[in-house]
Amino acid sequence: MSTDLTLSGVTLRHGARTIIDDLHLIIPSGEILVVTGPSGCGKSTLLRAIAGLRPIDAGSIAADGDPVVGTSRDRAMVFQDDALHPWRTVRRNIDLALTLRGVARKDRRAEAHRWIAEIGLDGFADHLPRELSGGMRQRVQLARGLAGAPRAVLMDEPFGALDAQTRTSMQQLLIRTLDAHPATVVFVTHDIDEAVLLGDRVVVLGNAGEPARAIVPVPHPRTPAADNSAARGAVAAALTAPAGTHSKAIA
């Protein structure tokens, strides 16, 4: 089950400096919304606010109409750094999410192994994170994030540190996994091609304190062979637009 997310007039500050100013967004249940923009524009800050990891300075954020006032297992974070517990094996990292979800102890081992098989890591259940490659660790983090059955998944450049081949593999794994385990997703990336591949819509933020520049719908999301060149061009144009440029289509 996924969730609607509603951002109404959200303002976020670091001290006296405004990072996000008066942002309005409606993210329907089951949508993958990609957020991109210039460095320092507040992408990660926005994600943490939606997760309930930091307070907002003005406006409101709601999940299915309920105010977001703190963290919830209904909203899972997946970071660029894998953030796995280094002393826990692959299985026990995933087991932690199942425990927090309330899965009975007698069922957790089998369910953890189902997730391990789903992410293509059969044979690695008893390995520690330090014994895995970067791509393998990200697979475990993805499984751990989704094993808790969150209604929203907030992903902060999760594939940014991976090589091109591994990144492509992880994008396809994410697509398959979300098809089997639907959730609302807010996905932060600097990569235009990744944004247009994964997102139903792409939000291009402005520089810190500026309005968002554009919201670009993607006609054929998660379809590698489809022609989404117009959407790609619109995202690229918004990213390179002069400071202060914004679209009247923001909604």
Rank of each mutant, 00 (worst) to 15 (best):
I94D: 06
L96P: 09
A97D: 00
R101K: 13
G102Y: 13
G102M: 11
V103E: 12
A104N: 13
A104S: 12
R108I: 07
R108D: 05
R109L: 12
A110Q: 14
A110G: 14
A110Y: 01
H113L: 14
R114L: 11
W115C: 04
I116D: 02
I116Y: 01
A117Y: 09
A117S: 14
A117G: 13
E118S: 12
E118Y: 08
L121K: 06
D122W: 08
D122V: 14
G123L: 03
F124V: 04
F124Q: 11
L128F: 15
L128Y: 15
P129E: 07
G134R: 11
G134N: 08
M136G: 07
R137I: 07
Q138I: 10
Q138V: 06
V140L: 00
Q141I: 03
Q141V: 15
G145A: 12
L146T: 03
A149Q: 15
A152T: 11
A152L: 12
V153A: 11
V153D: 02
L154H: 06
L154V: 09
M155A: 03
M155W: 00
D156Q: 07
E157Y: 08
P158Q: 03
G160H: 03
L162R: 09
T166D: 02
S169W: 07
S169A: 15
Q171R: 13
I175M: 12
R176V: 09
R176H: 15
T177G: 04
T177M: 14
L178N: 09
D179H: 14
A180I: 08
H181T: 12
P182D: 04
V185H: 03
V186A: 06
V186I: 13
F187A: 05
F187Q: 02
V188K: 00
T189V: 10
T189Q: 07
D191A: 08
D191W: 12
I192R: 04
I192G: 02
D193M: 07
A195D: 08
V196R: 01
L197R: 11
L198D: 10
G199I: 07
D200F: 02
D200S: 12
R201S: 04
R201M: 06
V202L: 00
V202H: 06
L205H: 02
N207F: 13
N207A: 15
E210Q: 04
I215A: 12
V216C: 05
P219N: 05
R222C: 10
R222K: 12
P224V: 00
P224D: 11
P224I: 06
P224N: 13
P224L: 01
A225N: 14
A226N: 10
D227A: 03
